[in-house]
């Protein structure tokens, strides 16, 4: 029964693709394929915004394909061949995976990646992780006494981001202290030591959006409590952390993320040759801040050089 449905799904995809190819053969040349996963609400709106950002800024025709778990790479491959695609934008790991399995000479960029890890596919990858330099920039603006930033990370997921952050931290005069952990038990021990730091006024802790390191039941409540008591600045790459009490975070402007992807594809052949295959972080970011925590730390949120704050927590006080 399952296979029957599967075949039916593939057949309908092929028929749709064929009909479409027959219906508009003259206009299919040079289209950019936007391949997106079928996601449920409320995540769908994230992809809708990225999609809107792409099509509003792309200087080429585009055609989109929404895939789900039943669609095989070979099917996508056939669709790309039949549609006369000139470049591919894949959104999310499922779309990235479906594209990475096919052999194509076409320019490919994968966006909306989360814990993007380098792979053999020669595609550009843009993760939803915020550009560390932007985080350090805001950190320095909020408190210029910070000289050390500690981060605990899972190397399987975020080594690429930490490599990048190491380079960027130097230009802000920040000593980035990195600690590897692969589970909550390990990270809890490290945070326990970090939060007992003897010079809390010069230390900030950077939390990654990684539940294998910072879970919401044990580690995050512990960090929030101890950092409040010792007035240690904690910032994050997760909006959810700020809602719970972390000082600030930067998170992707999804429409701008789409724009970033469109610009990469439009200028693909002018891009400098890539020296490594690490993903790129998102550079167009929004900012959320927890005003209650800021007040506790004695920070001034009215500073003119502080960037626009997009969301202020707590939502009600």
């Amino acid at each position: 029964m399952k296979h029957h449905f599967l075949q039916l799904g593939i057949l309908s995809l092929c028929v749709s693709a064929l009909l479409l190819a027959l219906a508009s053969p003259a206009h299919s040349q040079g289209k950019v394929a936007i391949i997106m996963p079928e996601v449920r609400a409320p995540y769908k709106v994230i992809f809708d915004d990225i999609y809107d950002g792409i099509v509003e800024n792309l200087n080429q025709q585009s055609i989109s394909l929404i895939i789900n778990k039943e669609v095989k790479s070979s099917t996508v491959d056939g669709w790309i061949a039949n549609m006369g695609i000139s470049a591919i934008i894949a959104l999310g790991p499922a779309a990235h995976k479906s594209v990475s399995k096919i052999t194509t000479e076409l320019p490919v960029v994968s966006g909306a990646m989360m814990t993007a890890t380098p792979d053999d596919q020669d595609s550009l990858k843009v993760a939803l992780s915020p550009e560390p330099a932007e985080l350090f920039d805001q950190l320095s603006t909020l408190n210029d006494n910070i000289s050390r930033v500690a981060v605990v990370y899972n190397p399987d997921r975020y080594q690429w981001l930490i490599n990048l952050a190491q380079k960027k931290a130097l230009s802000y005069g920040i000593d980035l202290l990195t600690y590897k952990a692969s589970n909550v038990k390990q990270s809890a021990k490290i945070y326990d030591q970090l939060l007992a730091d003897e010079k809390p006024q010069s230390l900030a802790i950077w939390l990654l959006q990684d539940r294998t390191i910072v879970d919401s039941k044990v580690v995050l409540p512990f960090i929030l409590e101890r950092s409040w008591q010792r007035s240690i600045m904690v910032f994050s790459s997760s909006l959810g952390h700020v809602k719970k009490g972390v000082l600030f975070c930067m998170y992707p402007d999804n429409r701008a993320h789409g724009k970033q992807l469109a610009q990469i594809i439009d200028n693909y052949y002018q891009l400098p040759a890539r020296v490594h295959k690490d993903p790129m972080p998102t550079t167009d970011l929004l900012m959320a801040i927890n005003s209650r925590t800021a007040a506790h730390l004695g920070l001034d949120l009215n500073k003119s050089d502080l960037r626009k704050i997009d969301v202020v927590f707590p939502l009600t006080n």
Partner: peptide, 25 residues
């Protein structure tokens, strides 16, 4: 993998309400 991806998105946004706020809905 898809579920994990949705959980990763939740890591980024915290919860579904926050997604709605962050995305302007």
């Amino acid at each position: 993998e898809q579920n994990e991806f949705e959980e990763d998105l939740l890591d980024l946004y915290g919860d579904e309400v926050t997604i709605s706020i962050a995305t302007g809905t």
